[in-house]
Amino acid sequence: MNAVAKVNTLVWLQPSHAEGLARLAGENDRAEWEWLAEERQRLGLRRGEPTPEEIRVSMLMRRPDWWPRMGQLTEAAMRARLALPDLAGPWRPFTAEEAQAQRLSGRRPGSPNERYGAKLMLDIAADVVDAARLAACRVSEPAVMALQRENLIGLRPSRSKRARARKLELQGQIYTVGRIARESIATLLSDG
C-alpha cells in the first residue's frame, strides 16, 4: 500500500468552525477508542497487556474511513467542494512561472485582508492542495486582472468611494486555498 503524500496546510477560519471540526474529530476519536476497547475485550486482554500489532494496524487502516481526524475530514470536504462546477475545471496547468509563484508566502494579489480568529495546521493530501491552488488561481484570474487594470491594488490604488466598492466586489470573486478549505468545512458542518 502506498502512502499518500500530505502537505501541512495552514487554514485560518472562524472559531466556531474550528470548534465544530474539532468536535467531529473528537467524536471519531472516541469511537475509535471504543472499537479498540471492544477488540481488546474480545481477545480477553487484561489492563496493561499490550494490544497485538495486527489490531493496531487494523485500527490505523480503518481510521481514514471510519474515524477521520480534522485533516482527513477537511481533505474529504475539499475533494467534494473541488468537484462542484465552479471549481471543477478543467483548468490549464500552471506555467513554470505560475508554479513558482505558488511557493511565495503572503496573500494572493488582490485577495481581501480578512480576519479569522482560529488557525489550524492540517495534513491534507498533496493532490487536493495542488487542485485547490490551480482552481483558486484560475477562478481568480479575471478578478485579479480587473483589480490591476483598474488600479485597485498595488502601491497607490484609487481611493474613491466608488473604487473601494468596486475593489470589494472584485475581491469577493478571488479564491484561495484557505477560502476553499473554509467553504468545505462550513459545508461539512452544516451537513452534519
Rank of each mutant, 00 (worst) to 15 (best):
T95F: 08
L82M: 11
L104E: 10
L84K: 14
P50L: 12
M70F: 00
A186L: 10
A136Q: 06
E98H: 10
E98W: 12
A131P: 00
R149W: 04
G154L: 06
R182P: 12
A186Y: 01
S184D: 01
L45H: 06
A165G: 01
Q100H: 08
A163N: 04
L155T: 06
N2G: 03
P142E: 12
G154F: 06
I174L: 11
D127V: 09
R81W: 02
L152I: 07
C137S: 11
Q148I: 11
T51R: 14
R115G: 06
A77K: 02
P112S: 12
W33H: 12
Q72P: 02
G26M: 11
L155H: 07
L60T: 05
L24I: 12
Q148E: 14
A165W: 02
S158V: 10
T74I: 06
R79P: 03
S190C: 07
L170P: 00
L84C: 07
A18G: 15
Q148P: 03
P112E: 09
M145F: 06
N8P: 08
W67A: 12
L189P: 09
L168A: 13
T9G: 09
E27W: 07
K167P: 00
R30G: 00
R63M: 09
A125I: 03
L84A: 14
R162V: 05
A181R: 02
R138M: 09
T187H: 09
M145H: 12
A31I: 07
M61A: 13
Q100W: 09
G89K: 13
S16C: 04
L36G: 01
Q102K: 09
R149F: 04
S160K: 06
A76C: 04
R156C: 00
A126W: 05
P50R: 13
A165R: 13
K161L: 10
R81E: 15
S111D: 08
K161H: 04
R47E: 14
L189F: 08
D29W: 05
M1D: 10
P93E: 14
L36K: 11
L45Q: 08
A132N: 06
Q171R: 10
M145R: 15
I124P: 01
